[in-house]
């Protein structure tokens, strides 16, 4: 049993399928007049956000509230962190308040791992994005969205395009999609692929047009200019011409292919407005699905006497 969700790599095929199936049932709750279940009544979920986020924090908050958990939102801005409080002291404070789960977003890769294994905190830790490392619930909601549109994931061709170097979304997606049996291709300029990408369970390419042939899913990544401390490409114009998704490229995709983006989008850079607003883009749906998937994760980690993940099913 694993009480935490730190990495998409920790999920077996059974775990991932259980989460997606549970999310499928929970998605139906969102269609009801009463969008609430009593399951986590009396449990406290802390959203510990050291980094700006809109959709992930709101999504976790909505998920926890729909399961009747008490939610405490903590953002580093306006807290004692700005006075220099360490992660350890923040964690001890949350432990003293009796947090059953801590959803953490942190600019440092590995912060959730530290929190989970330090013994500072007794509750479940859910990684909501750590540095350039991982963002497992994003990968789960992406897989959920793919499954809804394509019905199966195994054998599907998924092309992930853009700033892979800084992307925790790409890493988590590659790991999860490999578990689920998809065929993943990463496409980026050489400067934006991480060292050691050939060890990942996927292929990579520098040529977008060649990679898009026969793609079932195209996932565009945000160019993370806030993490870029060097010149990774000559100009925005050149990047968007070679690696951006425009209407022309989209028209060459197979009929059933979907376009995804984890948000927030840089319209006109990695994706044109025409593509982002087309009916092939499932970007808004990804947000909706995020709530169902996070409900499933919180339910499976906290709903019973013990986590339902990591068992020998």
């Amino acid at each position: 049993m694993t009480r935490h969700l730190l990495s998409a790599a920790d999920l077996s095929l059974d775990d991932a399928t259980l989460i997606l199936d549970t999310a499928d049932e929970l998605a139906r709750v969102s269609d009801r007049p009463v969008k609430k279940l009593p399951t986590l009544r009396g449990r406290t979920v802390v959203n510990l956000f050291f980094e700006d986020s809109t959709r992930t924090r709101i999504s976790f908050e909505a998920a926890a509230k729909r399961l009747s958990a008490d939610v405490i939102n903590f953002s580093a801005k306006g807290s004692s962190v700005s006075k220099g409080e360490s992660l350890k002291d923040t964690a001890l404070t949350l432990e003293a308040m009796g947090a059953d789960a801590v959803v953490i977003r942190h600019p440092a890769s590995g912060a959730p791992h530290t929190l989970a294994h330090s013994g500072w905190i007794g509750g479940s830790i859910v990684n909501a994005g750590d540095g350039t490392h991982e963002h497992p619930t994003q990968a789960l909601l992406d897989a959920f969205t793919m499954r809804r549109h394509l019905s199966t994931i195994a054998g599907r061709k998924v092309v992930i395009v853009g700033d892979v170097l800084h992307s925790r979304v790409a890493r988590s997606n590659v790991l999860l999609l490999a578990t689920l049996g998809a065929d993943v291709t990463l496409v980026a300029p050489p400067t934006l692929l991480p060292v050691g990408v050939d060890q990942w369970p996927c292929t990579h390419s520098y040529d977008l047009d060649a990679s898009l042939v026969g793609a079932d899913v195209v996932m565009m990544l945000r160019v993370q200019r806030e993490r870029m401390n060097a010149a990774f490409f000559p100009s925005v114009r050149e990047y968007s011409r070679r690696y951006g998704l425009d209407a022309d490229r989209m028209s060459r995709l197979p009929e059933h292919a979907i376009v995804m983006h984890p948000g927030p989008m840089n319209r006109g850079l990695e994706i044109t407005a025409a593509v982002a607003d087309s009916d092939r883009a499932v970007i808004i749906e990804q947000v909706t699905n995020g709530v169902s998937v996070r409900m499933a994760v919180l339910y499976l980690l906290l709903g019973g006497s013990d986590s339902a993940l990591g068992g020998d099913l």
């Binding site: 259980l18 009593p38 709903g303 019973g304 013990d306």
Partner: peptide
């Protein structure tokens, strides 16, 4: 009508998968 989320013994055993409410 799936009742898993409404059981009074949820906390006594590991969380389990859900049935379908339709």
């Amino acid at each position: 009508l799936d009742i898993t989320m409404f059981r009074d013994d949820l906390r006594l055993r590991p969380a389990r998968g859900l049935g379908r409410t339709e």
